[in-house]
Design a protein around this nucleic acid. Structure first.
Length: 511
RNA sequence: AGCGGGGUAGAGCAGUCUGGAGUGCUCGCGGGGCCCAUAACCCCGAGGUCGUGUGGUUCAAAUCCCACCCCCGCUACCA
């Protein structure tokens, strides 16, 4: 039995409601899974919530709710988010699950038995109010911002993981692991330029979390157990093919996680896809700035596909801006370009009928010459790799004389489609979903322009054949659309299922 | 501070590796066209000293080299 293509997202803290960044990550991972499904692969998609953190315990106490009850009810909101966004996971893991706890302890013990966990002294700034160690960055004017007191420098017994010994192995592994290049370079330069210290993997004096299997006085450091969720939720599909994470937790997934796996003698994950953050007017989205966007509300207001589309239009790797205004703009894009095309084409097809053209063509040299000579331009994609694409010539539209060039026009949408699809697939394989989506919409634009310039509504014999070509093209590109906007793709599929086409409903309402 | 990314039309971006008239895309703005369609769709136009040095190399620089300015990211227990 071969294992399924295994994709994960980060698991989310449940101390607050999901924000738009959570939605972004889940939708990215979902699109990746849908792409692999479209390629005919079997997939396994894991997402979930991280519930053992002290932060959750603290948030629950503040609200006067038992911790378990608190994390359960908040976890449900993340499940709801996935459902609303059509994020089609196979398994939703909660790290308070018994199985996961046992699994974390098992792996902790294995590493201990291998001699990679040892007892030492942890030194650091400790805030009595938080009952937690603080870093310099957590402090404002040297004080804990929550309790307004200076933390004390204390040292206590703790267990450490021998992270330092994996430096060379990591450098080798990382080379083919982290995507994109920029994020890889960050980690590589840190590994090369800074000493790699051992990692404290225990916490003491906590009443929430997973007990250390080797010393009852300690809990397992929450990061350690959180990472292990990927194994707990694998169900026979280990190793992970793609971890989808945000840039903020790159170090944990690039350095700590592989080290744990090497130490515990597990196969390593294949790829780490590090995405950027969504900002609001160039600023970080945060509660204190009051610019948190609730994705569930957005879906209720605008529909799943509009939200998915506007998220997937954002750059995968770089930070990008996001706002409700932008979402509205994107929604209108869907209505004007895609919605309009489907409606006008289906209306024309109902009114005049379609005829399957009998002429099939390939692009021989003569036709290539014609293409170059008249209404198309050849755009350079990558000079090095000798990749080109055919596009309508700017400023000329497609006013082609009928007659001997007619077979050429007739085959043109499918020729163009072929080039577009190979591009889309290239981008999808490179995790550049935004670019893939852009190509799809360039093709939608093309179809609108083509319809216009050929004046398909004049319903000649030729128009009926051209209409057929257009519909064939839509049918062929639709599965790619389904990766991004599955609900709409299903509707489009239904509309063009037979050759007896009825005028479609409005797919997207303009806002 | 160190390392990395970036500064191109009102906004957001390609283009830079491999130099060839500021070429292009999306949005916004102005004008026109079409009438199949959701005031949609199509075409044309305005708008740029390509961060600065009126720096170097070159017949030729957004692109290569140098200096400087500005923005952003990463810098480990923040899950």
């Amino acid at each position: 039995m071969t294992k399924n293509f295994y994709v994960t997202t980060a698991i989310d803290y449940v101390n607050a409601r999901p924000h738009i960044g959570h939605a972004f990550e889940k939708v990215l991972a979902d699109a990746l899974v849908r792409w692999h499904k479209a390629k005919g692969e079997k997939t396994w998609f894991l997402t979930g919530t991280d519930e053992n953190a002290q932060k959750n315990a603290r948030a629950a106490k503040e609200q006067g709710i038992p911790v378990k009850k608190f994390v359960d009810s908040n976890s449900k909101i993340f499940v709801e988010l996935c459902k609303k966004l059509n994020v089609d996971y196979d398994r939703f893991i909660k790290t308070t699950e018994k199985e996961h706890k046992l699994n974390s302890q098992k792996i902790f013990k294995e590493i201990y038995d291998n001699g990679d966990i040892y007892k030492g002294e942890y030194e650091g700034l400790y805030c009595v109010g938080c009952e937690a160690f603080k870093t310099e960055k957590d402090l404002i004017d040297g004080k804990c911002p929550e309790h307004d007191i200076k933390p004390e420098w204390i040292s206590e017994e703790a267990y450490f993981f021998k992270l330092s010994k994996y430096k060379d192995k990591l450098l080798k592994f990382i080379d083919s692991y982290i995507i994109p290049e920029q994020r890889k370079n960050e980690i590589v330069s840190r590994l090369k330029n800074e000493p790699l210290k051992d990692l404290c993997v225990s916490r003491t004096n906590l009443d929430w979390g997973i007990d250390s299997p080797i010393d009852k006085n300690f809990k397992i450091y929450v990061w350690f157990d959180a990472l292990i969720n990927y194994i707990s939720g694998a169900e026979g599909n280990w190793p992970v093919d793609v971890h989808v994470i945000g840039k903020g937790i790159n170090w944990f997934h690039s350095v700590i996680w592989p080290s744990i796996l090497i130490s515990a003698d597990y196969d390593l994950p294949k790829k780490l896809l590090v995405h950027g953050y969504l900002n609001f007017q160039g600023k970080k989205i945060s509660k204190s700035l009051g610019n948190v966007i609730d994705p569930i509300e957005l879906v209720n207001k605008y529909g799943s596909d509009s939200v998915r589309y506007s998220l997937l239009r954002c750059s995968v790797f770089d930070d990008s801006d996001f706002s409700e205004e932008l979402l509205k703009k994107r929604n209108n894009e869907l209505a004007d370009k895609l919605g309009n095309l489907i409606l006008r084409i289906s209306a024309l097809a109902e009114k005049y009928g379609i005829t399957k053209p009998v002429i099939t063509l390939t692009l021989d040299d003569e036709r290539k010459r014609l293409l170059r000579g008249s209404k198309l331009k050849i755009e350079v994609l990558d000079k090095k790799k000798n990749e080109y694409i055919l596009r309508p010539k700017e400023g000329e539209g497609l006013k082609i004389e009928f007659g001997e060039v007619f077979p050429l026009i007739l085959s043109y949408p499918s020729q163009f489609l072929e080039a577009t699809i190979s591009l889309i697939e290239k981008y999808l394989d490179n995790y550049e979903f935004d670019k893939a989506l852009d190509e799809i919409f360039k093709f939608i634009d093309f179809c609108n322009g083509y319809t216009q310039e050929i004046r398909v509504w004049e319903h000649t014999e030729a128009d009926r054949k051209i209409l057929y070509q257009l519909i064939e093209s839509i049918r062929k590109i639709n599965p790619y659309l389904g990766i991004f906007i599955p609900e709409t793709a299903k509707k489009i599929e239904r509309i063009f299922k037979t050759d007896k086409i009825k005028k479609s409903e409005v797919l997207f309402k303009k806002i």
